[in-house]
Nucleic acid binder design. Structure first.
Lengths: 172, 172
DNA sequence: GGAAATTAGTTTCATATGAAACTAATTGCA
DNA sequence: TGCAATTAGTTTCATATGAAACTAATTTCC
């Protein structure tokens, strides 16, 4: 691969008006998350013919068997359309079955089949191993620190997403 | 919005075989990055009619005017197809112009137009303000810590993606 | 009871994505 | 030189995404 920072290319001095993308937190988080998701997906995607949304549905149902599609969507922070499609595909492959909630027949009650559980139980150790490798060089204190920083950032980002008070009339 | 953890729903005890998605680092990073990207994009997407890839192209060209599309892709960690399309759209809207590299006529030499620069210079302060809000509650020590943790994680994830790539000092 | 409003989930539609095939220009090397 | 291999960038194609419209079941409220 070619190196990109050759001597002839000179960067604009990062003054007030030039932003260093490589130092910009939203960009860095995006790159990191994509790298991690991508490399983790390599572990299971082909081997188990599973997409990321499908894996997430299984992961949630592994902890909360019998919940509805909407609850899966909330737990996994996924769109309901994405969940609907992942569930449909998992059912088509015999990895999930859909019961109907006795009290509310609009709701589904999703459970893994024996086959789905097998897949799930084979992936979980791989996922844990991946995470362990990712954090192999981090001390306990660093892990705690990382945990708290992510937690706080997530809270902040959620807060910033919801506009607080409409300061101006909506023009957009 | 409805609460999801009602009394009747009991989680499988998080033993060896059930993975807690909400504690799983790849999942948490993905949720965080999506939240941040989404809330930041709200700041500029509609107001400037700009997609995330387009904003990134501008951000890179703001620092490295005159580089080629391929160099933009490397700098922004974007796919070359995505860059190609973002560049085409930016040119169509008069925000970029494409010169040809004198030495290698396959290469483009991308530069913002005055109009592009105006957009860029209006977004940069907004982007900085967003980042500042996100980090408002973080001390200098915490920011340093966050910076280093992200840096190391990114390096680890890159290493895990390429199983046998030699350790390389990428400056990002 | 029953019409209107609400909710769970699916389908449609328009757009975004990236791998692979492709075009055009350049470089390697006989 | 000239032709094969390489490289920059675009287009094609197959798939992924999510907003909005839709269907079906339920709840609200008169």
């Amino acid at each position: 691969m070619k190196l990109i920072a050759s001597a002839r290319m000179q960067a604009v001095p990062s003054s007030d008006n030039a932003l260093r993308l490589e130092d910009f937190l939203p960009y860095r988080l995006s790159v990191l998350a994509n790298l991690v998701s991508g490399s983790l997906a390599r572990v299971y995607a082909r081997r188990f013919d599973l997409t990321v949304p499908e894996w997430r549905v299984l992961a949630v149902l592994g902890r909360y068997p019998g919940i509805s599609a909407g609850e899966v969507a909330e737990r996994a922070a996924m769109d309901k359309v994405t969940v609907s499609r992942a569930v449909a595909r998992l059912i088509a492959r015999g990895r999930l079955r859909r019961g109907t909630d006795a009290e509310d027949r609009r709701r589904s009650a999703l459970r893994m089949t024996a086959e789905g559980r097998t897949v799930y139980q084979r992936i979980v150790p791989l996922a844990r191993a991946y995470e362990a490798e990712l954090l192999a060089d981090f001390s306990a204190a660093e892990r705690t620190s990382l945990d708290r920083l992510i937690h706080r950032l997530t809270g902040e980002a959620a807060r910033l997403r919801e506009p607080k008070a409409p300061a101006q009339a909506a023009d957009d």
